[in-house]
Nucleic acid binder design. Structure first.
Length: 496
RNA sequence: GCCCCCAUCGUCUAGUGGACCAGGACGUGGCCCUCUCAAGGCCAAAACAGGGGUUCGAACCCCCUUGGGGGCACCA
């Protein structure tokens, strides 16, 4: 809407699950693509065989779909720039790596892992910066070529200039200048022939005509390498956008595996595919993560995905790290639950009743919705708030039937009177019921609050519930009377 | 050790030299509504890390310090 169509990619590595940070990157990718009428692309960066997890790709797909972030090109649906899995693009990277070698920007390196390890240890001991020592950097090209052709095990390294500076432009930070002398001759292609991120991602972004690269700020240290690679090829760079990392809720330290495990113990999760079962809405998740590192103005906070497409702008991104705030997530979830049409809420909340073991009656469920909606922080709260509607009987607690200050005798008398009254009422609504209950309280010289407590406990078996008249209307007179009879039994037993 | 990034209430943030004795939201406390619990409404406490500059004027620009974060793999 504001600029040329953007081609933006979300490129996860299938080594784990989609978490909040990744989801936010994917969201911003999606928003940028949609806002400009461009394409949102899913690419799988599976160049690391050792850490590869076969289930991970499907897990990412599921998580992204749940969030509602549909892509235009990807491994599952194909597209004009495929394949979209890096493991299927091995030959492409080989070709580009050798092009770099021929242009003098890269070289084969034959150092063993053992030698490298030793070099590093020595550097560490001498408190020098840890870097490749350039052992193979000046092997004559013809000789290097011959050794490669002879089948000698090798990697390909970038030949970083030893002097000068690189100017790297980040959309949020402006120009960042790095001294080449501090940069390393990083490996581009491993000895197994597969490219590393540094090469694969640059080549793919170029070939796929990616216009904006959104990635975590942990890539800032290798940013200059990537710019060098682009320049070595003579390619036009995309717009680089380095997003801040998410910090632990305490604000002390980055989100980590360890911290994620800790959060689980508190019933919280940073993994997208856990959120549904925990009763969170994708709408709320989107709204929440969108606002961690981005803002629209000084007051608007409620956004749907479509709103965000309309309002998103890279310019409003914030480079500072953000601590995850779960109580705000709960707040947004409540807002989005309350924004749901009732039949939609009904559809979504039903599985939570079923999972809690309730036989769900459709008509009753429908009637419950208006009183359930404002009482839900998460969908999983539903059984606790309204499960009693589906219970065959309520089992009142004898003490609680007495409210704050009723004697057993008073409570028994009151219960009998209430039962008789309710039996006579034309309906169980607040309009017909409230005045008589209050009148009874006055007549018996007890607090109306205690009578309501008695009624609530008898009818629902719980000390808290939705408004009692609304509750009774849904339960129906027959059920209410049965439950009152049971309460009367209990109170009569207390008397003796 | 070296390199890089960041810095406004506890947290997420608005703010791009005068409209700011700094606005919103979550959370917290209080009040209202009220049959309990929510929802809703109102109110309150709560921040420009410190020090130097630049300027008539600085939360906003520059420098230093401090603090926080990230990175230094044949991981991404």
């Amino acid at each position: 809407m504001n600029s040329k169509p953007a081609r933006v990619r979300f490129a996860p590595s299938p080594t784990g699950r989609l978490h909040l940070g990744g989801a936010r990157t994917a969201l911003y990718d999606y928003l940028l693509a949609r806002a400009t009428g461009g394409q949102f692309i899913l690419r799988i960066e599976d160049t690391d065989r050792k850490r590869y997890q076969p289930e991970a790709e499907a897990e990412f797909v599921r998580a992204l779909r749940w969030l509602g972030l549909e892509w235009d090109e990807g491994p599952d649906i194909g597209g004009p720039y495929g394949p979209y899995r890096q493991s299927e693009r091995k030959e492409i990277y080989q070709r580009y790596a050798w092009e770099l070698v021929e242009r003098g920007h890269a070289y084969p390196c034959f150092c063993s892992a053992e030698r490298l390890q030793k070099v590093r240890e020595e550097q560490k001991r001498r408190k020098e910066s840890i870097r490749y020592d350039g052992h193979c950097r000046n092997i004559p090209p013809a000789e290097a070529r011959a050794r490669v052709e002879a089948g000698e095990r090798h990697v390909i390294r970038f030949k970083m200039p030893r002097e000068g500076q690189v100017v790297c432009r980040d959309a949020l930070r402006g120009e960042i200048v790095y001294d080449n002398a501090n940069l390393d001759d990083s490996i581009l292609v491993k000895s197994d022939g597969l490219a590393l991120y540094h090469l694969a991602s640059m080549v793919d972004d170029h070939l796929m005509e990616i216009t904006h690269v959104l990635r975590g700020s942990e890539w800032l240290p290798t940013f200059p390498l990537h710019v060098h690679i682009y320049q070595a090829f003579g390619w036009e760079q995309p717009e680089w956008v380095h997003l801040s990392v998410f910090l632990k809720p305490s604000g002390k330290g980055k989100m980590s595996k360890r911290e994620a495990a800790n959060l689980m113990k508190d019933g919280r999760s940073i993994f997208i595919t856990d959120l549904e079962a925990m009763g969170y809405l994708p709408e709320a998740t989107i709204n929440w993560i969108a606002l961690m590192g981005w803002s629209y103005d000084d007051r608007t906070e409620f956004f749907t995905l479509d709103d965000l497409v309309q309002k998103f702008s890279i310019r409003k991104l914030n480079p500072a790290p953000a601590a995850i705030n779960f109580s705000k997530f709960d707040h947004f979830n409540g807002l989005h639950i309350r924004a749901l049409p009732l039949d939609d809420l009904m559809r979504r909340v039903r599985p939570f009743f079923e999972r809690a073991g309730y036989q769900v009656d459709d008509e009753k469920l429908r009637q419950i919705m208006p009183i359930l909606q404002p009482r839900l922080k998460t969908l999983s709260d539903a059984p606790e708030v309204a499960g009693f509607f589906f219970e065959d009987r309520a089992e009142p607690d004898p003490q609680r039937l007495l409210g704050k200050r009723l004697t057993p005798a008073q409570a028994l008398a009151a219960a009998r009177r209430l039962r008789a009254m309710i039996d006579e009422w034309p309906d169980l609504s607040q309009e017909t019921g409230e005045a008589p209950v209050r009148a009874l309280a006055a007549e018996m010289n007890v607090k109306a609050g205690d009578l309501f407590a008695l009624l609530r406990e008898a009818v629902t078996g719980r000390p808290v519930s939705p408004p009692i008249f609304d509750t009774m209307v849904i339960l129906g007179r027959e059920t209410v009377l049965q439950r009152l009879d049971r309460a009367i039994e209990i109170l009569a037993a207390m008397e003796n």
